[in-house]
Design a protein around this nucleic acid. Sequence first.
RNA 1: GGCCCGUUCGUCUAGUGGUUAGGACACUAGGUUUUCAUCCUAGUAACGGGGGUUCGAUUCCCCCACGGGCUACCA
Length: 555
Amino acid sequence: MNIQERIAVKLFSSDLPTLQSIEERYPQRVLPADAMVTRVAPSPTGFMHLGGLYAALISERLAHQSGGVFYIRIEDTDKKREVAGAAGTIVRKLRNYDLVIDEGPLPSGDEVGAYGPYTQSKRADLYHAHIRELYVQGRAYPCFCTVEELDEMRKLQELQRARFGYYGQWAKCRDRSEEKVLELLQSNTPYVMRFKSMGDFNKKITVADLLKGRRELSENDQDIVIMKSDGLPTYHFAHLIDDHYMRTTHIVRGDEWFSSLPLHLQLFELFGWTPPRYGHYAAIQKMDGTSKRKLSKRYDAEANVEYYTEVGYPRVAVLEYLLNLADSEFEEWRAAHQDTSYTEYVLRFERLASSAGGALFDLVKLESISKDVIANMRAQDVYECAVEWAREQSTAFARVLEDQSDYAIQSLSVERALDGKGRKDIAKWSDVPKEISYFFEPFTLTQDQIQLLKGISQDVLHGSIELFIKTYEDTDSKERWFEKVKEIAKTYGYAESQKELKTHQEQYKGYVADIVKIFRVLLTGRAQSPDLHAIMKVMGNERVFRRLKTGLDLL
RNA sequence: GGCCCGUUCGUCUAGUGGUUAGGACACUAGGUUUUCAUCCUAGUAACGGGGGUUCGAUUCCCCCACGGGCUACCA
């Protein structure tokens, strides 16, 4: 055994699969010619960033609109950051987000798909087999530099105004003698494996980014770490092996990866593989005082996808908002196709490209989209979503909804057509309690609420309520009912319309709206509400009269 | 420090070597409505700065400013 072989024995397990056997294990996918295979690759930190959902959404759309495959892969090579149980959590969140996921882990821990395992920590042999191949070709080497040594190197580079990093003359372990390497290995010195780059920083490569277009970047000359001292690969290396064998065709990822694209391309070339097409988008920004910054996991609640679930934005509203950021033409399409699912919209890279700039997150716009989404839902569906939300976030309210489900649905039907098209006053499920609370018992009027009626004389208050009780019939049509209210108004010196009041201001104390306000306050406790006639129909005679009579006593 | 990416109304953006620089959200006003929410109409509001190239530049080039990213045994 020569010295190189002796080193290899120390470095690699003897039963690694051959590259050829791996290729055979993961055959080319049988798909239409222009079908895309895309993925979302979260780390199991328990946190799902809005940007991650954005990338997932775009990737999912690209795959499925082209007849391709969309899968999840868990990137858990950083054991320091990993949170126990987080992989299941993130898979559950993604799978609950109405995205169709063809392959990958299930919340249970099982997985579907023939290209697995879909969790990187279970693929160590694959990575090691390829690192061994690089080593044999002289394109990888063990590095024994300690963290302290690397820190010092960095300081020196700073001092000398040199580019930071492990390259050229700075790459101390690159040309270590084999005797020394073997000696260090035999004394069990910790090491990492580095890629021996053949790049020249002064040479440029041209890349065709899916979103940015053609760009020039310097070749990579950094001897990047491909395997850490714990034996797990770094992202750079792992994603490459995985995306190749999982037969990924298109990768949409954050801008933070753009700088390492030359490295990734270099590695693909080395193995003789066709790289997937990459597209890089800028992170979603947020206003902080007067300056913009990246939406931050640490400081911004809305960076966490969980936030939207807790506050209760419909999932589809969040997705449509993100689609809007991705492709502004979607907005026009949505206006023209109000009753169609967003999945009918076809994303195009030319349009996606414009989103590469880094959009500022706009909660107001999300609310607007969300109101439209909810306004287009049937009362029954609004009810079901509200209950689903309340079960997690507000159990008392959930109980009310569930105990009186028919009544609750009725209350949500006010000014809502049977097939949808309703009021736009609910933007999120947490708005529902305050929108319909007055329908439910116990209902009591506070002094503040009674104060809403100040300015109307006692005579008018008592007289009109009594007259109302005497004449109201729940079978009355809206028109018939309103005729009656107008009569009451006239009886007490109020105009029957605003127009009439404006023309003969001096003859009236007010107009019919002031009279309706009396009933509105006594029935709902507020000065503004949806159509009062519709509300009364839902409440029913008994409740209406009881509230009016109770109110009468308080005035 | 080095290297990259970016910059059109408040926000998301469309767009072009000659446009009244368009739309959406937000905002303001008016109209409809029993209040509110809708709905309808109208309005305010933008090409970061400086140099070039050009008959002409928001559009092409250079510089600057500003914002963002990378520069880890994190992804």
